[in-house]
Design a protein around this nucleic acid. Structure first.
Length: 848
RNA sequence: GGGCGGUUAGCUCAGUUGGUUAGAGCGCUACCUUGACACGGUAGAGGUCACAGGUUCGAAUCCUGUAUCGCCCA
């Protein structure tokens, strides 16, 4: 035990000690009922680790440590999400390269020493992926060192990355099984499309953003020449118009239904249709349907069985060839003015054309309205018809939807109201889950297609690998029965060029971490897992998709409980995000306040509750840590050599009272943890500890130094018993300082010790009554108050203390301790009817 | 527009099934170097529990409505 305990260097010391002792290693000899398994969120390593991660991962770690101390074998792996677009972007910027799949692999490629992000060097897909692998390996080291320093009790032998071999294998195997069971399918359909990244995106990745726009009033023409006015925010799509639509009950348009009108400028005949989704309040009540301006267009197109006239290409520009129906020389000439233009430019030109033809009525009316964006993109999404892979998720199937809603009800949510987010989302799904992405760094689809005599792929006859061959990369591996020479030639084959969305892999995290079909012995010990901890922002993505996969593959929930952490808000209560530039990186805070102090702050935030970044709380955490060091040092130094407490030696009523109060705390903290209320467990423990330090320690201090009497032995035994409980109660929250003080007097790590059993403390407390401690503390506080008001030292002598009230008998049981702690020459107890204690303190003449 | 959550001291938050005088920490003020702790300790000031009704012997707590903030969905 050091003379002057300190937090300096405590992290380095214990990180190494824990690594060497393997105290957090998962004991895989245990069977499922003795295991507590955690489906840890794999952080995106190409992003920076910020204080919000520290917050939620600390919540999980307190649970892991509690369960471990309760005797469970805790399966607490760590994954890295390195797969996907964020990594691609980081690699592009970091090395100054971009992926061009048409370039052949260069085994000698080295990235430029001084990358110029403005002149990215095109490299092959394989070279690009090698750079992704290289950089993520570096990023993962940084993350791991911060996690270790934060004291996460992860078993570092169980790590995975969402792009590693095991993950690719699992993702491909699960996909093939989905396909075999009809849960995955390919379809050519209108798809939400990001023109910047040139990839399809899923409903779960959308967000609405308010954008300025304008209503353009445009005249269509009946056969008799009279105009029909529509209003549109997307005049550039006029060439893609396939119909007009109004509400079936709209009086104004009854005579138009099932007739045709001509589009302005292009003169295309389009039908006028009735549909309930047309809003009579919006604009003129009649709208043009284009293929495709928004998701409502898709619905109309599908339900009204309209023609298809797509004009927007994969690059977000107007395609060169006019769609069917634009036949006249004038129409073709007008279309030629738009071809090749961006949407923005095309809109300007279309407006000019409409002005010139006299079909634009008045001036465009500026509005702002919500526009759909890919959450990582910065241009509005377009809708492009493409061939994509989907997994069913209930978006088109009532039976699946209600089964998944039922799964949501089976799951225990902490806090419970987060289930509403899940139900909201599932009920609002409007399509299946689109899982293919036209990107490079991801898990490829394990699929090839035969090429017909003209070199066209036969999508309806996909060639699939055997599961034993997984993982495969169809762009370099050859399908069964073919040779590499047949790649891309008529009569040969081609690999599916797409990769899976990141969520299609990370939705299998319980299977990947748990060794599904790779280590079945492990898998049956850990799956379904006990806990899925995660942020509230990814309920619709990660949580939901994991439920979907497990539902299909295992017909069970992937976990029993989910714990949802809130946001971290900056001190001004704004949500932290990179775009706001208010993200705080944790390393400086860890250094400034200590890991335990940061953990204390994090653990003070309840599940599901947004929490402000509060350095004040971190300071409190640091103070608590130091207090634990000092109070432990005191208790152990008065105990001397004899650090094995004998419960039978606790005979004094005050000591028993303290232990009875402690037993209540153990009870409470245990129940709180069992209900995933780590904050309450901490709060109860902490309050007891401070009261112990402020009052009990002061009351028994003199007695505890007395090695002659039984009363002295009672105090020392009680102190050690309390210390033993507190070290363990604090261990999930402040693991560094807890193991430090534990090591001063115990064998082994506190983190391998057993969680305090309430019976142990009730037995030691015997007939102890917490009210005795409360009464004695109150008298002591009154004495201190008088001294403080007289501006005296706490050591100042007091001439006389008189205690009155109904409770005097309780206080009297600690008479000697009160007199000693208060430095009172005389103390008298007078029974009276006062419900509360009244304490009169007389100071010596000289001090008054 | 629908849903969820919040609103308690200057700040950050507790407040268990309704029950005496609504608590804690930070910050602030004053004092104290006491044999664990100055990286400390003791004490003090500080609240119309968002607002309006209602239920009740009794409401921060239950009910209804309103305001306001945040989030999710459309």
């Amino acid at each position: 035990m050091p003379d002057k305990p300190s937090l300096d260097g405590i992290e380095a010391k214990w990180v190494d000690a824990w690594d060497e002792s393997g105290v957090y290693h998962f004991d895989r000899t245990k069977s499922r009922e003795d295991v507590y398994s955690i489906d840890t969120p794999p952080p995106t390593v190409s992003g920076s680790l910020h204080i919000g991660h520290v917050f939620s991962y600390t919540h999980t770690d307190t649970v892991a440590r509690f369960q471990r101390m309760r005797g469970k074998a805790v399966f607490y792996p760590m994954g890295w999400d390195d797969n996907g677009l964020p990594t691609e972007r980081r690699v592009q910027n970091y090395y100054g390269v971009r992926c061009d799949p048409s370039i052949p692999y260069d085994p000698d490629f080295t990235p430029p020493a001084k990358p110029d992000p403005k002149k990215q060097i095109p490299i092959s897909r394989r070279n690009f992926i090698e750079l992704c692998d290289r950089l993520t390996a570096e990023d993962e080291k940084v993350f791991e060192s911060i996690w270790r320093r934060l004291g996460l009790s992860v078993d570092w032998r169980h790590t995975y990355a969402t792009i590693d071999t095991a993950s690719r294998t699992a993702a491909q195997r699960a996909f093939l099984r989905n396909l075999a069971r009809g849960e995955a399918y390919m379809a050519e359909a209108p798809t939400l499309w990001d023109v910047t990244f040139r990839t399809a995106v899923a409903q779960a990745e959308l967000e609405d953003r308010e954008r300025p726009s304008a209503y353009h009033r445009v005249a269509f023409h009946r056969h008799d020449g009279t105009p029909v006015h529509i209003e549109t925010t997307r005049p550039e799509l006029l060439a893609a118009c396939v119909a007009l639509v109004a509400h079936p009950d709209d009086e104004r348009y009854q005579d138009l239904f099932d007739t045709t009108v001509r589009t302005p400028v292009f003169g295309v005949e389009v039908p006028v249709k009735a549909h309930r989704l047309a809003d009579p309040e919006k604009g003129s009540g009649i709208a043009m349907i284009c293929t495709f301006g928004d998701t409502t267009d898709v619905t109309w197109w599908r339900e009204l069985q309209l023609q298809t006239r797509p004009i927007i290409g994969w690059d977000g520009r107007i395609v060169a060839e006019p769609p069917a129906g634009i036949d006249s020389p004038q129409a073709r000439e007008a279309y030629a003015r738009l071809a090749g233009a961006t949407v923005h430019t095309a809109r300007e030109r279309m407006v000019e054309l409409l002005r010139a033809s006299g079909d634009l009525v008045g001036e465009p009316k500026p509005i702002t309205h919500p526009v759909k964006f890919y959450e990582k993109g910065d241009k509005p999404l377009e809708i492009v018809t493409t061939r994509q892979w989907y997994i069913r998720n209930g978006g088109r199937d009532e039976e699946v939807r209600s089964a998944l809603l039922e799964r949501g009800r089976e799951l225990t949510w902490y806090p419970g109201h987060m289930r509403a987010r899940y139900e909201n989302w599932v009920e609002g799904l409007n399509g299946d889950w689109l899982i293919s992405r036209q990107r490079f760094f991801g898990v490829p689809f394990p699929v090839w297609y035969p090429l017909d005599a003209d070199g066209n792929p036969r999508y309806d006859e996909p060639i699939l690998p055997e599961e034993a061959a997984l993982p495969v990369d169809p762009s370099s591996d050859v399908p069964p029965g073919y040779t590499e020479e047949q790649r891309g030639v008529p009569g040969g084959f081609m690999g599916d060029p797409d990769v899976m969305d990141t969520w299609a892999t990370s939705s299998l995290s319980p299977q990947i971490a748990g060794g599904w079909e790779r280590d079945e012995d492990l898998f049956q010990r850990v799956f379904p897992m006990d806990l899925r901890p995660q942020g509230q922002d990814i309920i619709r993505t990660w949580l939901f998709s994991t439920v979907v996969r497990s539902h299909f593959e295992h017909a069970t929930l992937p976990w029993r409980n989910t714990a949802i952490s809130g946001w971290i808000l900056d001190p001004d209560r704004k949500k932290m995000s990179k775009s706001k530039g208010n993200v705080v990186t944790p390393i400086d805070l860890l250094e400034k306040y200590s890991s335990d102090a940061i953990r204390y702050w994090a653990a003070s935030g309840r599940l599901g509750t947004d929490t402000a970044l509060d350095e004040g709380q971190m300071k409190v955490g640091r103070r608590l840590s130091i207090k634990i060091l000092n109070a432990s040092k005191f208790a152990l130094s008065v105990a001397g050599e004899d650090t094995v407490p004998d419960p039978a030696a606790v005979t004094e009523p005050l000591d028993r009272a303290m232990l009875a109060a402690l037993a209540d705390v153990v009870d409470d903290a245990t129940a709180a943890f069992e209900g995933y209320d780590h904050t309450r467990a901490l709060e109860r423990t902490e309050r007891f500890f401070w009261e112990l330090c402020d009052d009990y320690l002061e009351l028994v201090k003199a007695r505890a130094y007395d090695t002659e009497s039984a009363a002295g032995a009672s105090a020392r035994a009680a102190l050690l018993i309390a210390l033993s409980a507190l070290h363990r109660l604090f261990a999930p929250f402040v693991p560094f300082v807890a193991d430090e003080v534990w090591s001063w007097w115990q064998e082994g790590s506190v983190h391998a010790a057993s969680w305090p059993e309430v019976a142990e403390f009730r037995a030691a407390a015997q007939d102890g009554d917490p009210a005795v401690l409360a009464a004695a503390s109150e008298v002591l506080r009154s004495v201190r108050k008088v001294k403080s008001e007289a501006k005296l030292s706490m050591r100042a002598e007091v001439e006389r203390v008189v205690v009155r009230g109904k409770q005097v008998d309780r206080a009297r049981l600690a008479e000697a301790d009160i007199a000693s702690a208060g430095r009172a020459g005389a103390i008298a107890f007078e029974s009276s009817d006062d419900a509360e204690l009244r304490v009169d303190v007389t100071l010596p003449e000289a001090e008054q």
